[in-house]
Design a protein around this nucleic acid. Structure first.
Lengths: 232, 232
DNA sequence: ACAATCAATATCGTTGACAACTTTTTCCGT
DNA sequence: ACGGAAAAAGTTGTCAACGATATTGATTGT
């Protein structure tokens, strides 16, 4: 095997590369701190180095990738402080967006959300863990999309992707990306047009996820090795 | 004169170029559709072409400039639909952010907001129109900053900058970027910790600005020149 | 005089080579 | 065998040249 790992499109541009890395992060396939070698990416996408570097620049601007001078690109590993900020931001923004969706959502988007819940149920039923991880994040993006506003969708997508990294880093082994059933409850509130309940369900949902993280100990710095090993 | 138009920093990186173009757009110095010539930017910033191109890529990703293949970079000129989306997004997000600021704002940020209002008053007093334009936008960014969350600040900054372009395009000549006094009212509600009023003032404030725009006629398409000139 | 065609110019997109830096491996002395 | 210095390999950052495309201006024929 060499190329054609997944049928690349005819024209590979920056956006496509960004999209693929986005997806890989959302599905927890790219772990935090993973090195992203330029040459390997070039081969993988069958594209010149320029395209790859531009894609990495865009990803770093969105906090998905960290660029270190002369060392290369790495999947971001957010600090506890950054992680907290991401979820705080979501707890401010997403309830407001969900509220608006509850107030006025088109039948098409409602159908999309219903179908999504069905997919989640199915993934739970058949123990498709990988799918469930992806779907859990995607639900939030689709809610934002259901507002009919692509700007809101973009903002949330960025935050959800970063959240995937954060859960991978700070989530306990038994951590659920999104507790079972809560998405369904949210959809119920939206269907009833119950704006207040929708907003508060979304807030509590996010709070629960954040509380399930272990953000207490600031990540060890370089020099603290002795502390870590208990040699003081 | 050649270089040193404004004392460039020792190290000019992409972020600095982006920042400067951001500012120029916010102050209505760079009009929509303005061509951004790579070579001229290189000379202006005293950097190689690569830096400029990377900065332009970042700006295009944020909707501030538009890249046309083989034609170059232009300051974005949002369509009425995009313009509407930007303000709709702000009307969803900013009230939620302002509410949170009203609930819990640190004394330092409160002082910052007070000082800002003083600057606005001063600019109005001495008829410094240019300053007032910049300050009107900056107020919203500072409110987001007052949440203590840099992610929220970043999101709002992006939207405010795009709004500057939109006002330049669709604002009537007598259009006020932000009606006099409303920022002051908002600060009042924040100081009282009145969350509901703060949120609703912010919403109405944005609605008023949007209503002051003339988004009715879709931007003329290429072939409609005759219509524009009344030659039919 | 006008329109269409063609050449000339300017600008952008891409590639390849090279320099700067980091990481790994090798080598040597103790 | 161990630690450290030096060499080698690998990777990233930068630049300059080249080809491709769009735009402008000149030319020609009617």
């Amino acid at each position: 095997m060499e190329a054609a790992n997944k049928a690349l499109p005819d024209r590979v541009d920056e956006a496509y590369i960004v999209e693929r890395i986005y997806s890989a992060v959302m599905e927890h396939r790219l772990p935090p701190a993973q090195k992203l070698n330029e040459l390997k990416l070039c081969e993988a996408f069958g594209v010149g180095r320029m395209r790859v570097r531009r894609a990495l620049l865009l990803l770093s601007d969105q906090g998905i990738v960290e660029l270190e001078a002369n060392r290369g690109a790495f999947v971001a590993s957010p600090s506890p402080k950054e992680a907290s900020e991401v979820f705080d931001a979501r707890m401010v923004l997403e309830p407001a967006i969900a509220r608006r969706v509850a107030v006025a959502v088109s039948p098409e988007y409602l159908a999309m959300l219903r179908q999504h819940i069905a997919l989640e149920d199915e993934a739970r039923e058949y123990r498709k863990g990988a799918d469930l991880v992806r779907l859990s994040g995607e639900f939030h993006v689709k809610v934002a999309l259901a507002s009919g506003n692509l700007i809101l969708r973009r903002v949330i997508r960025e935050l959800v992707t970063r959240s995937s990294l954060i859960v991978g880093l700070f989530g306990a082994s038994n951590h659920k990306d999104c507790p079972d059933g809560e998405h369904s409850d949210l959809l119920g509130a939206i269907e009833r047009g119950d704006a207040d309940t929708t907003a508060s369900l979304m807030f509590e949902h996010l709070r629960k996820i954040k509380d399930g993280l272990d953000l207490a100990p600031p990540r060890p710095k370089e020099g603290d090795l002795k502390d870590i090993l208990g040699l003081r």
